[in-house]
Design a protein around this nucleic acid. Sequence first.
DNA 1: TTGTCGGCCGATCGCCGACAA
DNA 2: TTGTCGGCGATCGGCCGACAA
Lengths: 208, 208
Amino acid sequence: LDSKLWHACAGGMHSQGIVDFGRRPRIPSYLLCRVFSIDYMADEETDEVFARMKLVPSRADELDYYRENVGLQDSNGSDLSEKPPSFAKTLTQSDANNGGGFSVPRYCAETIFPRLDYSADPPAQTVLAKDVHGEVWKFRHIYRGTPRRHLLTTGWSSFVNQKKLVAGDSIVFLRTERGELCTPSGWNTPSAICLPPPPGGFSLFSRE
Amino acid sequence: LDSKLWHACAGGMHSQGIVDFGRRPRIPSYLLCRVFSIDYMADEETDEVFARMKLVPSRADELDYYRENVGLQDSNGSDLSEKPPSFAKTLTQSDANNGGGFSVPRYCAETIFPRLDYSADPPAQTVLAKDVHGEVWKFRHIYRGTPRRHLLTTGWSSFVNQKKLVAGDSIVFLRTERGELCTPSGWNTPSAICLPPPPGGFSLFSRE
DNA sequence: TTGTCGGCCGATCGCCGACAA
DNA sequence: TTGTCGGCGATCGGCCGACAA
């Protein structure tokens, strides 16, 4: 699982988890460990994201060494300091309603989505996005209405139904360097969508 | 789980199962056992029926004793020799098609279903049936068309969808002494339906 | 007797701009 | 800027008899 997508999804809830280590009295309350590796995972059914970390007990005097010489990396070697542009929105009743579309905030459409050709009438394009499992979803992105606004129409309700999204759930749009995805979610956990960069050859109406 | 319903469902496939006991060489190939009890079970998801039997090793000379003095019973005390009228049908493409109904073979409608009042035009009634889990399903049973035939219409497609039935699956109709049920099935395993006896007060149009 | 088909009608889906918060 | 609504047209579900195997 892509580490940037994982962070975009987990960002809003990584402080909610409580881990119970069983309170075994023989183990000291605190152990200095080196984080040996991190793997980013997503539940197959709920799309809930979580991480698997391998911890190696360290001696106290090793701390400074690792701090200075070892950058924290995931098992794919990606540097965790990169933060690709992303945008999160909590689904409204209208977004989640059956038969409705998705109101795309203007900022999200202009900074995350592929560039739209506004010379068409109405301006519209097909947007491809992959979810945390690598599954590709197709949406119609249209700019219409008075006043004008960005919407996802065709493909959206199928997405909502299959991901069992309801009002209050979140969706995260993420834009990476090379074409991407969207991830839906279960139950008040964020859904992430990564979109291809503007020059993507995917979009039916996208130019430049 | 009712033992008669179980037998109606399992009847077509109880010779298909293969049990691997691991071929442990220390256990004799054959052991004379007394069947201590039988419990009839159904998988919650697939409706596949199976049985749990408690076997007690016996000495050879006990065989005749049990044969003569102990009737085989399930854990509810029901005698296994009773066989209530039942009817099985393999679903056709038309039965399983979305938007279609279920063609009820005449023999099944006349011997298993509650008696229909043929004086109405068209003759129709509501039929209630419980599945292996005790869930009640409601069907509209109508006698129409030229030539006349028995059909299940309203309620049928919902049943097919929720039970994920496809052409080739089986359904078993079973009639017991005191009101009953239907059981759907997964994947080429029989679905059973028990129906209330003719005088059932459930049916909208049923008389006598 | 009953499996499949086309017709047909009503319900739902889903796209639309209007409007207001 | 964007959430909600009523409208309305297209699609689909589902009931029907015709017909033939």
